[in-house]
Amino acid sequence: MAKILRANEMSKCLGCFACMQFCACVNKKNHSLQKSAIRIKAPGGISDRFVAVVCQGCSEPPCAEVCPSNALTPRKGGGVNQDPKKCIGCRRCENACMGHAITYDMEEHKPIICDHCGICANFCPHGCLNMQEVPD
């Protein structure tokens, strides 16, 4: 069974940003939170509720549908696989994602794509992020 990331307990979020730090660290080898595929936001500032903006794991991912070069392809269980070598940096995926989960890495000229690796959930200290088993 495949697993996908679910930000399903966000009311417990402390706003520590460990998920972002570890995602950027492990996946992009970078200290910058900008490199993270998951983003924690509090639209009204810190006194507001935190939300996780991250890949929702669509079974029919619009980002892959608009990708002209097959850099993004549907992943087993939901979401997409990314082949950076095939990416031409057109940024169509960014607009196609209704969840605003894709950001663009201005340095690499590639979108930052969550591959549901589970690092963020692993290092979430308060159980806000969880990996869920889904049928392939």
């Binding site: 402390l14 520590c16 460990a18 730090q21 200290p125 308060h126």
Partner: peptide, 11 residues
Amino acid sequence: RKLACVGCPVG
């Protein structure tokens, strides 16, 4: 509610 500074998993 409990909150944390950025980079602190304690909260």
